[in-house]
Design a protein around this nucleic acid. Structure first.
Length: 586
DNA sequence: CTAGGGTTAG
């Protein structure tokens, strides 16, 4: 969860013009508070261990006088030093914190967005800030991502019978969205309703976004239509979120509807709108469609920005259309855009994918020369490309370089290399990496296990594969469909067709679609074992899922059926031949 | 400041 860091040097706002307070000490000597306060501030700033000596330096000063403490706080312009001084005072000389000083420090901390300091200050002093301060505090917490704490503050305000302003509510909702806590959005919105606060456009924007983030895009759309009916027009933000959400769901009719509504409502679709459309079209495999829109936009006078170019170049690269990608790259230059971290990595990825490591390295060097730092992503990109083209030794070299350059290896780094090694049958190397990864305490993903289980099954080490499977399940990871296929095929290969059938049934129960190879392997094993009933069961599912029967298996199936010579056989034969690709051969 | 987008596993 994102947390804002506390600011270190901060200006404490002066509350009032500097007033000279004169004070009579026990030595009956006049003491200028302002002067002493300034001296003390300097000591606090410059002497790291002032706590040990301050009292003895001013033996006659009454540190517990609130007027004095206020004066020091007024002169101290570093809020964290103020806080330290205040805490020191609290534990000395019987000083009992006065509300004015407390409020001053608390407000300064809030203003400095030092949420965690403000929070511990509240906890340690147990004073009650003014409602206005609390409200600012709640905003500060939200902006810093401390939404749980913000909800507590809202409850506190509620306890005091104070209703936060609409902009504070909105800030809270927006803060919850930023850290992905839609649950808190709904909680807060519920309270808003209980207070009788009337939602405004910004509230609607937050709610629509919350629906979209919850993958309830249709509900978000419902809300939009409702408010449009009431004459409220949310800004592009709400529209763009909905459009992006529907693109993700491939609901292109709704997308068009929304684009039209936007235009009707004078919310002109912008680069953000179309960027989302193009991005999701590309991600859902409709790159040509995305490219068409991209070109249309240019013709209609839209000026794609660097992000849009990057998105489009990426789309073209994933399709292997490197020529088109390069053309856009140069077009982008012509428009005055210079590639950034994303653009470089995208293009490097394109070259790597197509196996042009020479170009990839030229671009990589250019990226570094332009001052962009090498990152985990840039390394992962190169390693992915190398592994894809069977150059795992080179990828491994890069892997070893990373710590020397202080570049963090992440789960993708390891998964990439594990996959690469597995593909080349280097099981020992893969398992070593896998263990190293575990030792480092990194959180594996399903993709960490997938290639290992596959290769272990291929070489007949199904027990080890199953043990990895159990590990996965135990840490709450869901194996992908093909991992089921791998295990079934492994079991069949070692003659455990009965257990293979169990796994097959489990797959169907989980509504997963076994691959063609799994059906073929199961069928030939079952036929080999003379288990005709199970064969027919498997066959039935196979046809239901739209697969065709391979020639070889079809022949042995027909042979077996004919050798049984029962009445039932004849009814089966027709179906089987219909579903096979040999009917023309007979 | 005002909402916010793009890169790496397949």
């Amino acid at each position: 969860m994102a947390r804002a860091s506390s600011s270190i040097s901060v200006v404490l706002r002066r509350q009032s013009p500097n007033t000279h307070i004169r004070y009579l000490t026990t030595e009956t000597k006049d003491c200028d508070f302002t002067q002493v306060a300034q001296q003390i501030c300097k000591i606090i700033r410059t002497k790291p261990r002032w706590e040990n000596t301050l009292s003895s330096q001013y033996p006659s000063l009454n540190f517990s006088d609130p007027q004095f403490s206020r004066e020091v706080l007024k002169h101290q312009n570093n809020v964290l030093l103020s806080l330290r001084f205040f805490l020191w005072l609290s534990s000395h000389n019987g000083f009992s914190p006065d509300p004015i000083s407390c409020n001053a420090i608390f407000n300064a901390l809030v203003e400095a967005k030092a949420c965690s300091a403000a929070k511990s200050f509240l906890e340690s002093t147990s004073f009650s800030p003014e409602p206005a301060s609390l409200e600012s505090y709640a905003r500060c917490l939200c902006e810093g991502g401390w939404v749980e704490e913000a909800v507590d503050v809202f409850n506190r305000l509620k306890g005091a019978g104070v209703c936060p302003s609409i902009s504070t509510w909105n800030a809270a909702l927006s803060g919850c969205l930023k850290v992905g806590r839609t649950d808190n959005v709904w909680k807060l919105y519920q309270e808003m309703i209980e207070y009788g606060v009337v939602a405004d456009v910004e509230t609607v924007r937050c709610l629509i976004q919350a629906f979209c983030d919850d993958n309830d895009v249709s509900k978000g759309y419902g809300l939009l239509r409702q408010v449009l009916g009431d004459g409220i027009v949310p800004g592009n933000a709400a529209f763009n979120k909905l459009i992006s959400g529907f693109c993700k769901e491939k609901e292109y009719t709704k997308v068009s509807e929304l684009l039209h509504t936007m235009i009707t409502m004078n919310c002109v679709p912008d680069n953000f709108t179309y960027q989302e459309v193009i991005n999701w079209l590309c991600k859902k495999g409709k790159v040509s469609e995305g490219f068409r829109i991209f070109n249309d936009l240019k013709e209609r006078g839209y000026a794609p920005d660097i992000v849009m170019y990057t998105t489009m170049i990426h789309g073209l690269c994933t399709m292997g259309w490197l020529g088109g990608a390069r053309k856009l790259w140069f077009e982008m230059f012509g428009k005055g855009f210079r590639p950034n971290q994303y653009t470089y990595n995208t293009m490097i990825h394109g070259f790597c994918k197509s196996g042009d490591f020479e170009q990839a390295r030229i671009l990589y060097k250019e990226m570094c020369d332009k001052g962009y730092k090498e990152t985990t992503v840039s390394y992962n990109t190169m390693m992915t490309g190398l592994c894809l083209h069977g150059r795992t030794d080179e990828a491994y070299k890069l892997f070893k370089e990373m710590p020397q350059k202080d570049i963090v290896r992440d789960v993708i780094t390891y998964n990439t290399l594990i996959r690469g090694f597995c593909k080349e049958g280097k099981i020992v190397e893969s398992l070593n990496l896998f263990r190293e990864f575990h030792t480092l305490g990194l959180q594996p993903s399903a993709q960490s296990y997938t290639p290992l289980i596959a290769v272990l099954c291929q070489v007949g080490r199904v027990e080890e594969a199953k043990s990895l499977w159990n590990d996965m399940k135990n840490i709450g990871l869901q194996p992908i469909s093909s991992t089921h296929d791998d295990i079934i095929n492994g079991l069949c290969d070692q003659g455990d067709v009965t257990e293979g059938m169990d796994w097959f049934v489990a797959m169907l129960t989980d509504k997963l679609k076994p691959e063609q190879r799994t059906f073929s392997r199961l069928l030939s094993c079952l036929l080999h074992r003379d288990r005709l009933d199970d064969s027919l069961l498997v066959l039935d599912f196979m046809f239901t899922l739209g697969y065709v029967l391979e020639k070889g298996i079809c022949y042995s199936l027909v042979n077996q059926l004919c050798s049984k010579n029962t009445h039932f056989v004849e009814t089966c034969l027709g179906d089987i031949l219909e579903g096979s690709d040999i009917s023309t051969c007979l």
